[in-house]
Design a protein around this nucleic acid. Structure first.
Lengths: 202, 202
DNA sequence: GGTGGCATGTAACCGGTTACATGATTAT
DNA sequence: ATAATCATGTAACCGGTTACATGCCACC
């Protein structure tokens, strides 16, 4: 088998963007440079090699556009194995570990979720995220109580800040679920993951 | 001159912990494994080499403790150049770039701040952080309005989540300032680092 | 004699950072 | 001319990840 080594976050971010709309490396750099997406670097030294690696694995494919006047562009598109890899990533279960160590990654996954898993998938994700947060926050509060004596004032405040951040995320999950529910009533629904695949991007 | 290459975040985290209390690599690993500190790996492959690099630069110094029974421990302490480096890092100005790209690093700095810069330093930091957040949040809201049409529902919700996170941080800065003010009234004050530095009322 | 905790380390691998190189076109 | 924008790339360097290696002790 070819290298099963896992795709880094940047790879998924690129795959997610490409699955919505074919783009050149330069387009993607501009997206990273100008939008609040995750927080990836727009440096060519990160993006071009990452695109090459995705192409080597067959997750994206490129075509060179020669245009009169301007320099040639290489436009990348997600292939169907690429879309499958994106779907698998987005659909991973929410673990407590990920909540603790990589909340940003969780939100990156969510941001690509609706076109890939539909609203039902988003709702499932949010519910399991809420469950993890509901169990994690009290345990953090307990730890904070235990550590109280050992922490400096600013250390204690920083911990308070982290906890409030999690509380804000939790309250957002409630909000997001309510938005989804409202929309789903109006707009019938989008299918969930497997089976009849309709979704043509852009 | 020796390598001026900058110290990675993990290095500062270690330096910060060591400046509070001498510890072995193993102690530090346990701290990372069991407390919500930043979110560093407790892997030996990260920590031991990082400690060695700090020692090579003279920022920490180690002494080997031979104990009957247990295996020897190597206990690290911050040196005075190490404390100076920590202070310089903690005292760096808050830039919008850091707010956007490395908020976690900002909070790590804050968590080590009080013993190093005193409460006045903490207050200065919080005020400038609040200023950055106050200018950044509205610009994010604007961007969100502009992007509305291009985003999927989950993309839009993820952006909302990010903004709410920043709002929570901002409200925390207000809270933290009020806590600092309260304590400073009761407990006269902690000195800042060297000379008696008085609080700039800004 | 095996497991598990204390304790320190190394080595291969990989990807992100920084800086540099190239080159065409348009605007000043 | 030259700067700026479009556009793609490479190479050195560095540190984090993962996995492995070692060794001592306590306890069952």
């Amino acid at each position: 088998m070819k290298g099963q080594r896992d795709i880094p976050t940047l790879g998924y971010a690129l795959l997610g963007l490409l699955s919505r709309q074919p783009s050149s490396g330069y387009d993607l750099r501009k997206i990273f440079a100008t939008t609040p997406l995750g927080t990836f670097s727009d440096s060519p030294g990160a993006i071009y090699p990452a695109l090459r690696r995705l192409e080597e694995r067959g997750l994206v494919r490129s075509t060179v556009e020669e245009r009169s006047g301007l320099r040639r562009r290489k436009v990348f598109r997600a292939t169907s194995p690429g879309s499958a890899a994106l779907r698998a990533w987005v659909d991973m279960p929410v673990t407590q570990k990920e909540v603790i160590r990589d909340l940003e990654g969780l939100f990156l996954r969510f941001s690509f979720m609706e076109p890939v898993l539909g609203r039902a998938g988003c709702a499932r994700f949010l519910k399991s995220l809420a469950r993890e947060l509901e169990s994690y926050i009290p345990s953090l509060r307990e730890q904070m109580a235990l550590l109280r004596a050992k922490l400096s004032l600013s250390g204690w405040l920083a911990l308070e800040c982290g906890i409030r951040g999690y509380e804000a995320q939790l309250s957002w999950t409630r909000y997001a679920l309510s938005v989804l529910a409202r929309k789903s009533n109006r707009n019938p629904r989008r299918r969930s993951s497997s089976s009849p695949r309709r979704q043509r991007s852009s």
